[in-house]
């Protein structure tokens, strides 16, 4: 298995995530895209770790996993709050920063 190939795969996954991030209007859709990106990062880390034999990559990947999960949790909580106060989760509706 070629390291470059794996890295390219991770890069591709990341870019798909970026595309989703820019495209989605629904907040959950954005969270999904962020998940994709985080996943890509993890693949990257683990690949390097396997390549070099150092466990550091996997350690780091574990950390990011945990942090990402925490982020999703809090994000969803905010989303629910948002939904309660305005009834929709379309990101476009959050215009408070305009004025």
């Amino acid at each position: 298995m070629n390291l470059s190939a794996i890295l390219l795969l991770a890069a591709g996954l990341f870019c798909v995530g970026v595309y989703g991030l820019l495209t989605r209007r629904n907040a959950i859709g954005i969270l999904l895209s962020v998940e994709l990106m985080a996943n890509a990062v993890n693949i990257n880390l683990v690949a390097f770790s396997a390549n070099s034999g150092s466990p550091l990559g996997q350690v780091f990947a574990l950390f990011t996993m945990a942090v990402t999960v925490a982020e999703v949790v809090v994000g969803l909580a905010i989303l629910i709050l948002l939904f309660r106060s305005r009834g929709g989760v379309l990101v476009d509706a959050a215009q408070e920063l305009k004025r």
Binding site: C15, V18, L22, R24, R25, N26
Partner: peptide, 16 residues
């Protein structure tokens, strides 16, 4: 699940 403007997104991700 609404999709917003596509072209800048495609552009950016391709560049990246």
């Amino acid at each position: 699940n609404e999709i917003g403007a596509i072209s800048p997104a495609v552009l950016f991700s391709t560049i990246l």
